[in-house]
Design a protein around this nucleic acid. Structure first.
Lengths: 189, 189
DNA sequence: GGCTCCATGTAAGGAGTTACATGATTCA
DNA sequence: TGAATCATGTAACTCCTTACATGGAGCC
């Protein structure tokens, strides 16, 4: 365990990329990007302009290694190093304290100003919020049918399950909010 | 209803600031910032470098008005306009379709790589995640004791309730994940 | 006189997105 | 031959954060 003196700061995205490099073995930067695009997870939306620089940073920090060009297309396979695995482990186990707070939910943000509109618009807001949340929930549930306990699909299943729990909780919360807003006199000038 | 031709794009933060200007009546930029600092909501962390430019944008777009200087300190009160209220309403009612998907949760992100570490480290991860989530939950519950249905505290209550629902769902999910990970052989090389 | 709070901002920098640029391979 | 896919990347832009700069008011 080397003392971490000049340890480069990595973003959440960098760790995600490192995780994918671990999970999918040595693979090309192009494949890493494709993996991010496949994923339905919100945190995983990513573009060439961030993936390529991220991989470069990981390689420079010695957490990943890029092999020599494999073919005429210029494909270059990237793999994780021992140092990279150690860093990934620390990211998982040593959680920063504030990481446990509730996430930023754009629907919840809007709900905090819901009495600024008329009674009818309030109902409309709740209704729309419920609809799009249900749609998102259906979407995730559809891709989570197979509840395999094999390690291949396990990680994806865990992630999807987290989304399902969150979305169901949001629906329950919206029901509660609807009840609270039944009072027509709440709208403020 | 004017057709929105040269309508300036606003960020979520801009709308939040506009919402606070609506909610707290005409107030100084300094007070807006203070309101953001008080708030325990994740989406509301904000700094001078973003609040002041945001208010300037709102004023330029005609959604807020800044009065003349009130005192020798240079205090300038900002209020919402009719156009601003209409824009706030549209933000609430016309939800963009993708807004309903599950949020980016750093704990869920980490969980998706949990089989990269040893059995013991996996248990450690789950345990830490549970602890900090419970702490965050206690924190929100503490400030949400008063379940007033008056419109003064209503909006804050709705927001806190949303956080509580999310955090409870995360705890349930973590219990499920713990069960799934009981199998010691899952760790991958 | 100095500390804290009120009140205004700017400058530098980090991180990520969109859009573009380039070229090989594969397949209909 | 042309379209889709594989594969690499950069440039400009946006948005936000950290840190700094400035000064008045109130109080001990």
């Amino acid at each position: 365990m080397v003392h971490a003196r000049g340890m480069i700061r990595l973003t959440e995205l960098d760790f995600c990329v490192l995780g994918v490099i671990w999970e999918c073995g040595p693979l090309s930067a192009y494949r890493v990007r494709a993996r991010f695009e496949e994923s339905n997870t919100a945190a995983w939306s990513s573009s060439a302009g961030s993936i390529y620089p991220s991989i470069r940073r990981l390689v420079r920090a010695g957490l990943a290694v890029a092999g020599s060009r494999q073919d005429e297309r210029g494909t270059r396979l990237v793999g994780i190093t021992a140092k990279g695995r150690e860093r990934l482990r620390a990211w998982l186990v040593d959680l920063p304290p504030k990481i446990g707070t509730a996430t930023a939910d754009p629907i919840r943000t809007r709900a905090q100003f819901v009495t600024s509109v008329s009674y009818e618009d309030r109902l409309r807001f709740i209704d729309n919020a419920r609809t799009i949340t249900r749609e998102a929930l259906n979407e995730v549930e559809k891709v989570t049918k197979v509840k395999s306990t094999g390690s291949d699909t396990m990680l994806e299943y865990i992630g999807n399950l987290g989304s399902i729990f969150e979305l169901r909780a949001r629906l329950q919360w919206l029901n509660r909010v609807a009840d609270l807003l039944k009072n027509k006199r709440l709208t403020r000038a």
